[in-house]
Structure formats: C-alpha cells, structure tokens
Design a protein around this nucleic acid. Sequence first.
DNA 1: CTGAAAGCGCTTACAG
DNA 2: CTGAAAGCGCTTACAG
Lengths: 343, 343
Amino acid sequence: MGIKKIAELANVSIGTVDRVLHNRKGVSKETEKRVRKVIKEIGYTKNTTASRLKLASVKKIKFAILIPEAENKWNYWKLPKKGIEQAVQELRELGVAVDNYLFLDSSSFNNLAEQIFLKDYDAIVTVPFFKKESNSLLKRAEGKKIPIIFLDTEIELEGPACFIRQDSHKAGRVAGRLLHGLVGAKGDYFVINMLNDRGIHANNIQREQGFREFFNTINEKVTIHTINYSLNDEFKVTAEMEDWFGKDNLKGMFVTNSKSHLLPKILEQYQVKNTFIVGFDLNNQNLEYLKEDKINFLINQQPKYQGYAAIKGLFNFITKQDRSELNLDIPVEIIVKENSATL
Amino acid sequence: MGIKKIAELANVSIGTVDRVLHNRKGVSKETEKRVRKVIKEIGYTKNTTASRLKLASVKKIKFAILIPEAENKWNYWKLPKKGIEQAVQELRELGVAVDNYLFLDSSSFNNLAEQIFLKDYDAIVTVPFFKKESNSLLKRAEGKKIPIIFLDTEIELEGPACFIRQDSHKAGRVAGRLLHGLVGAKGDYFVINMLNDRGIHANNIQREQGFREFFNTINEKVTIHTINYSLNDEFKVTAEMEDWFGKDNLKGMFVTNSKSHLLPKILEQYQVKNTFIVGFDLNNQNLEYLKEDKINFLINQQPKYQGYAAIKGLFNFITKQDRSELNLDIPVEIIVKENSATL
DNA sequence: CTGAAAGCGCTTACAG
DNA sequence: CTGAAAGCGCTTACAG
C-alpha cells in the first residue's frame, strides 16, 4: 500500500513516485499522469511515521514560541509552556523541537520577533497582546508562508489568523448564568475589571460584554455596576460603591481576570455581606478561596492544553496539510469546590 | 543515540544490543553487563516510532473491544466507540487494530469473552456491567497477562483492575453543590433513580451517595427524598409524592442517569412548580431541555474521550511499559446552556 | 526526465 | 553466544 506498490503498478521507480507525491518538477506529463492515476486507485495515504523517521534526523521541524516571561507576575504563562513542552516531548522522536522567546513588554516582543525571523522556523506560536505588533508579526509570517497560531485571546487582526483560545463572550455568558442562579433577579451585579500595566485586556472586555449579553438574553432587567480597579493602586471604595455595597440584597461579583482572590479580603474589610463571586483561572490563591467557599465558581480556560494543542495542531498541519487543528475553541470549563481537584 | 551507538561503544553488534534491550536470552553475562553499562551511560531511550514502523507490518497490536451494542436503547455507547475509532485511526500506521464485540446482556457478554480468548489479543477494553462476569474476565486476562481496561463505571473486583471513568461520588457531590446553589436550605431535594433492565446501576448508587455526602459536608439538614422509577412502567405519582410535590417551596431534582429529559414532561403533567433539575450526559433530548431552561445543569462524563484514552493508554503501556495512562479519573464537566455547544 | 542506492532506528530471521 | 544482512515506508543525494 506504499510508494513501492505505486511504483510497481505505474512501472516507475519509487524516486519518481516521490517526485509526484511532493509535486517536485522533473517528471514528464505522461509519467505523472500515470502515477497519479495509480495513487488515486489504490487510495494511497502517506505514512507520516515512516516519513518523519527519516526526516527527524535530516530536517527537524522547529517552532518558535514567543510568549510572556513567566515570572511571578505572569505565573499563568508557565501553563501553556508546560503544555508545549509535553507536546514536544511526545513528538521529539519525530524530529520536533522548539525555541522559547520570552517577552516582557511590546518592545521586547518586537525584538524577539526580529530574532525569530533571522532563523528559519517552520511555525510560530505566540500571543496577541499587542495589536500593532501582532499585526506586523502576522504580516511577516504570511509573507514567508510560516504558519502562526495565537494563543489565549482572540483579537481582530488585519488578515486571517489562527487562534486557540476560549470564546470570551461565551465565558462571560456562562458567568452570567452561574451568578444569576445564585443571586436571582433581585440582586445587584458587579463586573470587576482589575487593570494591569497594559490597561484592560481584550478578553476581559469581551467577558464583560458576554456577561451583560446573558442578562439581555434572558430578558431580565438587573442592575450591573462596573468597577475598574487598578492593581497598582490601593482599592478605593468610593462613596458610590459604599451605597451599592450597603444594600441588604444579594450581590453577584464577576471578576473578569485571574485575580478574583483579591476580592474576598476586600469585601471582608468593607464588611460587604451576601456576596457571590465568579472568577477565572485555577491559580493556587483562587483555588484556596474556592475551597473556603469564598469564591463560588471559577472558569478554567485550560491554558496547558492550549499550548499542547498548538504544537500538535501545527505538527499535523506541517506533516499532513491538515488545517483542522489550527483553530480551537476551548470549552468553558466550570469549576466548583467539588470538581476542582482530579486526584 | 540509538542502538548503533550502543553497539559501537560496547563493541558488539546491534543484534546483541537488541537482545539485551529485550531481555532475550543468549547473551553472556559479561557482554550483557558491558552493554547495560553503555545503555545507562548514554541514557538510551527506545525510539518507539522506529520500532513500530518495522513491527506494524509483522506484528500488529490488536485490541478486543467488548462493549454494549449501541442500538437506540444504549445510544450512549456510540460515543466511547467513536473515541476508540479515532485513536485507532491515529495509531493505524503504527500497526494498531481493533475488533469490536458488542454484547446485549450478561450471557452474550460471556459468549463474546469466550471468543476473545480464542484469539490472541494484546489488550481488552470493556465495561464492568456484570460483576460476576467481569471478575471472571479479569481473572482470565490476568492469567494470560493481557492488560484490560474497564470503562464507564468503577466497581469493586476481586483483584486490581484499571478503570477509565468518572468518579461517581464526586459527580454526585458536584450535583449537590449545583442544586444547593439554586434551591438553598429551605427547599426539598429529590434523587431520581430511573431503573433499567439491570436494576439500579452501580454508578447511579454512587452518585446518590455523593449527593447526600455533599449536604452532610456542608452541615445542612435538608430533606432528600429518593424516588426509584422503572423505565418499563408508567411513572406513578404516589400519594406520598403528591404531598412532596404539593409544597410551595423550591425543589431540586437530581436525576442519577442520562434520562433527565423524561422529567420535565412529567413535572409539567403533575403541575409541579419551582423545580430545578441536574442530570447526566449530553444526549440530544437532554440538550434540548437544557436550551429551553427546563434542565439547569448537565454533567458530562466525556464518553468519547474515555474510549480514546483507553486505546492511547494501552498503546503506551504495550509499547513503552508506561502504566500511567491505564487509569484515568475523568473530570466532572459541568454544562449549562451557554457552554453546551462548542461552535 | 528517471532510476538505483543508501539510510532513518529498530526488528527479525538466518548463519555460524 | 554472536554477527551480518534484509527490511519496515519514506527521503535524499547522486548518477546518468
């Protein structure tokens, strides 16, 4: 069922079959036609394993990974990196290798992108944190026909791009559903955007939109306050917020980023009662509060899997022209205390 | 880094290296020692791909799949089967193949098991529906040193066994958490076990236990009624149940199997109000009611993935002696209307 | 434009 | 007890 069989049936050498299969030139029209016919007839599909066995030693597949430096501040980014490492481990004997380029801000992002294009990578995995810079990266990759996958967040770019990320609108709607179940129609709702250095993150905006969308969809007029709080300053409870918090009804708090663990302390400090919290991401601090029943739901975006899937998807694209795994909508995983640990 | 290098360093032929690597006899103590030393020194790990490339044509890995016939009644079983097929597809070029044996009841289970042992399979994937029969299967597999994985449900067997399934206690606790969030301390709770031909299923019992456990853990004394309802008869609302349903409070209904879609109709018919439902499995009927807000939460046990993981796990065990994927605790996936479809 | 040969890392029969 | 050779399915120089 392999190229040998094709060669035999088409009365050519396996070298010629290989030329046809790879659309290399140097084959006469007639021979090519004959070979293609046989290929079709026997329903040939390439044995990727055998192919990679040879290529693993002569032509590695190299990926450039351009993601945030995972210090304490962006601890989160250890997870996609882990997933990437796992995928590489699985594919190592098939000749896959990665180089990590870890950025700190938009300028180091740019510098590293520059370095990446000096070498010949087969694909790039990155993160669309900086719109302008992402666009320029996308353009250059397109020009060099290097496939590129963006993780974590989907933003609009000038040209089609591949994303492996959770649908943040959807995540926001799910959060709406969950909080509404606990708080009901008579409560007050709060969307809490904790800003970081780069201001408000694209997917945090989308999460808030989705959250509000949910209440529109179920056609319930509830009060939703937005609180934007900068991580750099102290949290200041304004007079307006004191009014909101002072009410005796139930309160639903939707924290649009991974910092929901900052909330319980603050709420305690200001003696705000009857609150329910939905946040994002399974960092240790969040999980701690989930266990203490001070956070009610966490939404997981499977960061490790995102990294894993990116490498696998790119590998399948490069080796089998299979585009189907270049885009991925990560399910909105709902975590409560009871399903938070898989023993 | 391969056997060639080892052979060179140990001053033997690759044939001898191979003998040592596979613990085959016919190697002198001294040679073996020398070879093992080199193997250790260079930190050799087998290239599974290369190994399988050769073996794929001379010695296939064959799995016997012994699962329920997926007619309409057990439609669910199409899903693990699909996952199995996907894994086999991915591993086909490495020489993996499966035969399906589909049973209808305990006697056909036994007959098919008999047939399986007449052939030489490298592993078995099955389902522990029938305790006695599962034990005898496990025993025979043990005797022949054939690895075996049980899907879907964990039951106690006479001897250690591998399970890829969701922790049903945990799933029950999650259900408790979810319903409690909607219904609170003042409501009534109902556990609804819909019996089938085989009586009440092991994991349905465990789900009920987990559910009750949750309320013990949070130390809240709520009323939990158990309703056992046979699928074969009409649903009869007893006088006692009329009392329960007639109360004006909120009611939480936990359906321990995949038939939660039968409930909304019945509740409507008996004009039971203020009910919230948590059920299992993403069949079309359940999803339909989820979309209509008549079922509030569904718990998914990722049946397709269970099948997929079983094949992959067995493959990694057989080819790399890696036992780590033979047991798997499937996460308790919480599904609401908003995250039910991944577009 | 085409073919024959060597090789990827491992496995298997065969010869001695 | 040990080695040399052929082969898994594909790829790559090299020769003509």
